Simulated scan of single mutants.
Amino acid sequence: MNINLIMKQTITEMKAVVLRFSRAQPRWWQRYAKRCVEDQITVNAGYLAYVTLLSLVPLVAVGVAIFSAFPGFEETRVAIEHFIFNNFVPTSTDTIKEHISAFTGNANQMTAIGVSFLAVIALLLIRNVDTTLNRIWRIEKKRPLMISFAIYWMVLTLGPVLLGASIGMTSYIVSLVSFADQGIPGFSGAIIKMLPYLISMIGFIMLYTLVPNTSVSFKAAVPGALFAALLFELTKKGFALYISHFPSYEVIYGALATVPILFVWVYLSWIVVLLGAEFTVCLTQDMEAAGVDTCSEFDPPDAQGL
């Protein structure tokens, strides 16, 4: 089929969904809020935040072990840490960075058996994310255990490598854009500011389309990912503003303030992820009600999640 025809058809269908969405206000948001309450977003976010902190050290250790197997990736690992702290962790203190550096240093000294044990703990986080999102999509069918393990292990091992490759490509693009800045002043700065939004959107799209054990429309995942990415940036700026101007955690906890601050931020991040998932599900239901084909030519045939 002609690509232009496919794009026109997709745009037409998206306009119909937007029109239907606008006409359904505020009833649509009431249905959205009802789903969030039914799925206990705050409770699930708290559980995922706890599991995330429990798996944080194992994830870092496994990631370092993977990068250590490829000596040429050492600079990439440092670049990833720098990029994540600067763009996705608000008001990241030097204390957190020192702890992460200590984790990576200790991970380099671990044996293969120790790293494997930590990998099992890290796999628990991926499994819980899978279970939570399938519950939001109302998916009761579970994958076979061996298939699930193979998928989780692939995500755990290939994730750091793909992240490193994306950071390398991003650096290359930024270097190319800097040349364009000579002709258009401020152009490179605008592109760099948009990169965190773009990377967040790509991550949310992959999460919402690949993790649920069902076919998720790309047409619904893109607006859901955009909603989650914007909400994530607003949450990050608001949290950074709160920590900077209302240092209550430092007053109460003193030197231990890093722990509750990190926990609260991880908790808020999971709330954003789950809110975006609920948004995607509601849009999918609207598309199906409007008769929009949710399996376009851009969607993989008979996709069954990861």
Score class of each variant (00 low, 15 high):
2 N>I: 06
5 L>T: 07
7 M>P: 00
9 Q>H: 10
9 Q>I: 03
11 I>D: 03
13 E>Q: 11
17 V>I: 04
17 V>Q: 01
20 R>Q: 05
23 R>D: 14
25 Q>L: 14
26 P>R: 12
27 R>A: 07
33 A>P: 00
34 K>W: 11
35 R>E: 14
35 R>Q: 12
36 C>L: 06
37 V>M: 05
41 I>W: 05
43 V>C: 00
44 N>G: 00
50 Y>W: 13
50 Y>H: 12
52 T>Q: 14
52 T>V: 08
54 L>H: 08
57 V>A: 07
58 P>Q: 04
59 L>T: 10
63 G>F: 05
65 A>R: 14
65 A>W: 15
67 F>Y: 15
71 P>M: 09
72 G>V: 06
73 F>P: 06
77 R>K: 12
79 A>E: 13
81 E>A: 04
83 F>W: 13
86 N>V: 01
87 N>R: 10
87 N>Q: 10
88 F>R: 06
89 V>K: 05
90 P>Q: 01
95 T>Q: 11
97 K>I: 03
100 I>F: 14
101 S>Y: 03
101 S>R: 03
103 F>L: 03
107 A>G: 10
108 N>F: 14
108 N>R: 15
111 T>C: 08
114 G>Q: 15
120 V>G: 01
125 L>K: 13
128 N>M: 08
129 V>E: 05
132 T>S: 01
133 L>V: 06
135 R>E: 04
136 I>P: 00
137 W>K: 01
138 R>H: 11
138 R>L: 02
139 I>F: 03
139 I>Y: 02
139 I>S: 02
140 E>M: 00
140 E>S: 08
142 K>V: 06
150 A>V: 01
150 A>M: 02
152 Y>N: 09
156 L>W: 02
159 G>N: 02
159 G>I: 05
164 G>F: 05
167 I>H: 12
168 G>I: 02
170 T>I: 08
172 Y>Q: 07
172 Y>C: 05
174 V>D: 10
177 V>P: 03
190 A>W: 03
190 A>H: 02
192 I>Q: 07
192 I>E: 11
195 L>K: 10
196 P>M: 15
197 Y>E: 08
198 L>T: 15
198 L>F: 13
199 I>L: 14
201 M>G: 13
202 I>Q: 11
206 M>C: 11
207 L>M: 12
209 T>L: 04
210 L>K: 05
213 N>E: 12
214 T>V: 15
216 V>P: 04
218 F>L: 15
220 A>K: 01
221 A>Q: 04
224 G>D: 09
226 L>D: 04
230 L>T: 08
231 L>T: 07
236 K>R: 11
238 G>T: 01
239 F>L: 01
239 F>E: 00
239 F>G: 00
240 A>I: 01
246 F>P: 00
247 P>L: 00
247 P>S: 01
248 S>H: 09
250 E>P: 00
251 V>S: 15
257 A>V: 00
261 I>S: 02
263 F>M: 08
265 W>H: 12
266 V>R: 07
267 Y>M: 15
267 Y>K: 12
268 L>F: 14
269 S>N: 08
270 W>D: 02
274 L>S: 01
274 L>K: 04
276 G>F: 02
277 A>K: 00
278 E>Q: 02
279 F>L: 04
280 T>S: 11
281 V>F: 06
282 C>A: 15
285 Q>L: 09
295 C>W: 08
296 S>Y: 04
297 E>L: 13
298 F>V: 15
299 D>R: 06
299 D>C: 13
304 Q>M: 11
